[in-house]
C-alpha cells in the first residue's frame, strides 16, 4: 500500500460522507425552496409551450403539458422526501418497538415477532402496494402505507439483533440486580445504545423508500396527478421518447442524486459510529 492508496482510502471514508451530506442537502434544499419559489408554476398547463427545449426561461425545457420541468422536479422533491420521511418514521416507530419488545421478552414472544417478520419479507413493497390499490385505489397514502409495511420487519430485525447484544452486556446485569424492570432497562440502557444502528439503518431505508416511491408512482400506484412526482414524470416521458427524449433524463437524475446522497450519508454515518468497521472496509 503506498501513500496514494492511503489518501484515496481516506477520501472514500470522509469524502463519501461529505458528498452524501452535500447531495442530500441539495435535495432537501430544493424541496424547501419549492415552497416559496419555483421558476414557473408546476401545476398550470400551458399547452402552447409543450416540449420546449432547454432555454434561459425553461432550463430543463417543458413537458407535454407545457409545464416547466425544473419546477416539476423541484416540487417533486417534496413528494419523495415526504413519502420517505413519513413511511420510514412510521416503520421505525413500529419496527423498533416490536424489536425491543421481542428482545426484552425473548422466548416465544421473540419467536413470533421474528416469524411474522419473515412472513412479511415474502411481500415486496410493490406487491403490498398492488394489494392495497386493488382494495382502495391508487394514492400517495397507499404508497406510504406499502413502503412502511415493508420496512417494519426490517427495523424489527435490526433492533432485535442490536438489542440482544446490549442485553448480554454486564451493565444490564447490574441494572437488573438493582431491581430495574424490563421496560426501564429498555428505555434507559438498550434504546440509547442501539440508536446509532437505527440512525444508519433509517438513512439507508430512506434511500430505498425514495426508490420505492419512484417505482410506485411510475406504475401509477403512488402520487396522482396533478401532484408532481419524479416517478410519474418518467412515466409520462416514456410516452414521448421519440419526440422529447431528454424528458426521460432529468427526473431519473433527480432520483439517483437523492438515493446516492442518502446512501453515502448512511455509509458515512456507519463509518463514523463504528471506526473499526471503517478501517476494515
Amino acid at each position: 500500500m503506498n501513500a496514494a492508496a492511503i489518501a484515496v482510502g481516506r477520501f472514500f471514508r470522509y469524502g463519501n460522507f461529505a458528498i452524501g451530506v452535500a447531495l442530500s442537502g441539495l435535495v432537501v434544499l430544493t424541496a424547501l425552496v419549492s415552497f416559496v419559489w419555483t421558476p414557473h408554476s408546476a401545476i398550470d398547463i400551458e399547452i402552447v409551450d409543450k416540449f420546449k427545449p432547454m432555454s434561459a426561461t425553461h432550463w430543463f425545457g417543458t413537458d407535454h403539458f407545457g409545464r416547466d420541468v425544473l419546477s416539476l422536479i423541484m416540487v417533486g422533491a417534496r413528494n419523495s422526501i415526504a413519502v420517505g420521511i413519513i413511511a420510514v418514521s412510521a416503520s421505525v416507530t413500529l419496527g423498533t418497538a416490536l424489536g425491543l419488545f421481542a428482545s426484552a421478552r425473548r422466548g416465544w414472544v421473540e419467536e413470533i415477532v421474528m416469524r411474522l417478520s419473515d412472513l412479511a419479507f415474502a411481500f415486496p413493497a410493490v406487491l403490498t402496494a398492488i394489494m392495497i390499490t386493488a382494495l382502495w385505489g391508487p394514492s400517495v397514502i397507499n404508497a406510504i402505507l406499502a413502503i412502511a409495511i415493508f420496512n417494519v420487519p426490517v427495523f424489527a430485525r435490526v433492533t432485535r439483533g442490536a438489542a440482544n447484544a446490549v442485553w448480554a452486556r454486564e451493565y444490564i446485569l447490574a441494572a437488573r440486580a438493582a431491581g430495574k424492570g424490563g421496560l426501564r432497562i429498555t428505555v434507559e440502557h438498550v434504546l440509547p445504545n442501539i440508536l446509532n444502528v437505527l440512525i444508519v439503518q433509517a438513512t439507508i431505508q430512506f434511500a430505498l423508500a425514495v426508490l420505492a416511491e419512484a417505482a410506485l408512482s411510475y406504475l401509477g400506484l403512488g402520487a396522482q396527478p396533478p401532484l408532481p412526482s419524479w416517478g410519474r414524470m418518467l412515466r409520462d416521458a416514456q410516452s414521448y421518447l421519440y419526440t422529447a427524449p431528454e424528458q426521460a433524463i432529468y427526473p431519473g437524475i433527480a432520483i439517483a442524486i437523492a438515493v446516492l446522497g442518502l446512501n453515502l450519508l448512511g455509509d458515512g454515518l456507519r463509518d463514523a459510529f463504528d471506526p473499526k468497521l471503517a478501517r476494515k472496509r
Binding site: A214, Y218, G252, A256, V259, L260
Partner: peptide, 14 residues
C-alpha cells in the same frame, strides 16, 4: 454506488 442509486425502470427507459 451509481447502480444502487438508479431506479431499474429508469435504467430500462435509458
Amino acid at each position: 454506488q451509481i447502480g444502487i442509486a438508479m431506479p431499474n425502470f429508469w435504467f430500462g427507459i435509458l
